[in-house]
Amino acid sequence: MAISGTEREEFEKQLEAYVGLDIGLEDRGRDPVNAAMVRHWCEAMGDACGAYTDAAEAAASVHGELVAPPTMLQTWILGGVSMASGESDPRDKQKELHRLFDSKGFTGVVATNTEQEYTRYLKMGDEIRAKTVIESISEQKATGLGIGYFINTRSTFRDQNDEEVGWLTFRVLKFEIAEASASSSSEAAAPSRPQRLKPALGHDNAWWWDCVEKDELAIQRCSRCQALRHPPRPMCGECQASDWDFVFSTGQGTIYSFVVIRHPEVPGYTYPLVVAVVELEEGTRFVGNVLDIDPEEVEIGMPVQASIELVDDEMKLPVFRRAQ
């Protein structure tokens, strides 16, 4: 639980002392802006702009000579391999502030926003340094990740002539990691792609999902009056008999009705998403997604064919495509 009462008041008073503070260190680039680091960056990003790596093209461009990609700005002052140890200069007030948050249980950290402006493009040989100020700390907020505080910092970058070349701001959330995720082990880590909500399986519907597992689209049938019904349920709506069996559908049908969902987007689905009520040729209706079609081309009465496919890492579902 997040701190409260007097403890919180005391803590927030401590935080106030950091607002407006210069973090106490000037970050100096260990290397001047240079072609090797620029080339390495461009290769990583797949950026083929000649202004960065082709001296002749750069000379003929508005830049007049080789320049560094502007979004590399912070690269020139970062610590490189030394950052991997997690150790920091004890004089660094920003790190000290983060440790203060950690001590009160706000151990999570995530950057949420960054804004940058570039006064000019950097040229080979420029020597860059930066000073950082803690601009503001928000009130306590309840966020999707947990309770926490936003910290805004601003770094101003200067060159060898003490001219400003650009600035950047970061907005970082320091938050209390929710218990569920804090206790999750590596094998409980989130799957690599979004998973669908699983159906609640019970006595009345598990058999239908078992059929899907075996790549069959089953339709429940009343043993007394032979009426088909879907989704599966215990009693016939026509004659109230509770005896039933099932038939396998060919998966052929026509679109009875449909909607195109554009918003909100739920992870794991492709948008725009066509959801149709399909009239199966056996004579009952079934709701499913229609795939691989321009939503503009979907129309009522269009013939479709079902197939049973994996829709995430483990769940199979009948999906539809336009019949050939």
């Binding site: 390495h40 960056w41 990583a44 690269t75 970062l78 030394s82 950052m83």
Partner: peptide, 11 residues
């Protein structure tokens, strides 16, 4: 490659 090219060795 992006992390290394940007000199950001945060583990």
């Amino acid at each position: 490659a992006g992390a290394v090219a940007s000199q950001d060795y945060t583990p």
